[in-house]
Nucleic acid binder design. Sequence first.
DNA 1: CTCCCGATAT
DNA 2: ATATCAGGAG
Length: 208
Amino acid sequence: MDINKLIEILKEKYPNARYELDWDNPLQLLIGTILAAQCTDERVNKVTKILFPKYPNAQAVADADIGELEEVLKPTGFYKKKAKQIQDVCRALLENFAGEVPKTMAELTTLPGVARKSANVVLNNAFRIPSGIIVDTHVHRISPRMGLTKEGNPEAIERALMKIVPQDEWVQFGPAMVLHGRYVCTAKKPKCSECVLKDICPKIGVEN
DNA sequence: CTCCCGATAT
DNA sequence: ATATCAGGAG
């Protein structure tokens, strides 16, 4: 797989790639990303449409009745854990970060429910900071398939991608890979015939 | 490795 | 009825 060719083709196919969560400010993206654990963006968007007007800022979430918060979050699954996480995140933001979403990987990953994937989503999309490369379930699946790495865990895959993709491409590359995995290079029955990468992809492990 | 949990498609 | 979707903490 020619990495420069891959970057070029992805950029052309997904010029404005971004995570498909609805948000108006960094806090909303952070909350949406936490809720997106084991849950589609589509379902997160349905919930945040109710959640964000009801709790318009960090203080409102911090002060929320945990039971009411849980009710709103229920459709995203793991709702008790997520309710506590986003409330604790907002409290930590108010206490430690002057109510603002921090702009570094180290600070973001101190927050409950936020590891590298979520931190990269926030930093890449809200702040255009090339903190790393988003490795969600899609990037995790398609990177070995494309022959970009033989690594199997998210941290190692991210490290491998960071080595072969120039840093000034990370913010574009990550979200584009996510979209490509979600809609074309799917887990079952990947749509190779309509894939823009079909001529340069080794299709490792893909049955056809 | 287990636990945390539910909507939608087939 | 069963498959698919798709992170993080302990």
